[in-house]
Design a protein around this nucleic acid. Structure first.
Lengths: 140, 140
DNA sequence: CAGCTTATTGCAAATTATTCGCAATAAGCC
DNA sequence: GGCTTATTGCGAATAATTTGCAATAAGCTG
């Protein structure tokens, strides 16, 4: 049986007259399983059967279709499944050991909306990345 | 007379046994005047007398010394003066026309601190980028 | 201010990341 | 099964960033 998410994925592609090809499925699956922000390069490394220009093309398309979203972390751009495939959330990353926790905060979402509206902007999206020291790293 | 900021800049370098060279001064000045997040490439373009490997080296050092900070915007990494040289703030960018407003919100800062602590992390820094549609672009 | 030590620069080449043009392939439709 | 056209793979092009190394010059120190 196919999972909801896969059906949703296929529907989005069909609605946009895009073909359901093996590389697209494979990249989508890969993102489903890693469930972590990953770079284009690391997607390429872990899916060596797909040509890397194809990977970039697919990633860009997926971003447009909101199947995935960009997560800027430090110096690097990474990708993860879009909010339709994954609860909307942000990351809190330990600066020392690099471990990340995902979190969501309705309070935060609400405040952001308020701030945007106060500045006369209709909010569309946001990137929030928090950094800190986890308890283990603090006590070193 | 030298501005406060320049003295502060020189002090940081000296404290870290780094030499005060022309390229470092020039890049710092450039960031002072642009007062906008800029990419490494655009710094290079606008300071063609400095070799670009030097530019990358200096930017990395400045980030380490917190003279500047990284601002991830969409697909791109940009740099701007660090919080010691510039009021701490975030950007709200129009997705359509690209114009950005800077803002600060103590309420937001406070909430972020609270969220981090709740997750057992000692907050160190954060990147927040909001996107939206400005009033001009909404009415098109 | 001359001489010394060592951080820093410029240069050229190497790496890495990303994009492009084009011919071959294969999805989706009839 | 055959047709149309989006998509892929390939190789080459471009862009972005890093590295090694010799030459330069900052910041002492006397």
């Amino acid at each position: 049986m196919k999972s909801n998410l896969i059906i949703k994925f296929e529907t989005i592609l069909r609605r946009n007259r895009q073909r359901l090809t093996a590389p697209k499925r494979q990249i989508f699956d890969y993102l489903l399983t890693t469930n972590q922000p990953v770079s284009a390069v690391s997607i390429a490394k872990n899916n060596p059967n797909i040509n890397s220009s194809t990977i970039y093309r697919i990633l860009n398309r997926f971003v447009t279709l909101k199947i995935i979203k960009i997560v800027p972390q430090g110096f690097k751009i990474r990708y993860e499944l879009g909010d339709g495939f994954n609860q909307h959330h942000h990351h809190l990353t330990c600066e020392n050991c690099g471990r990340a926790v995902a979190f969501d905060s309705p309070e935060l979402e609400h405040l952001i909306k308020k701030i945007s509206l106060n500045l006369n902007m209709k909010p569309t999206k946001h990137h929030i990345e928090l950094y800190g020291l986890c308890s283990a790293c603090q006590s070193q």
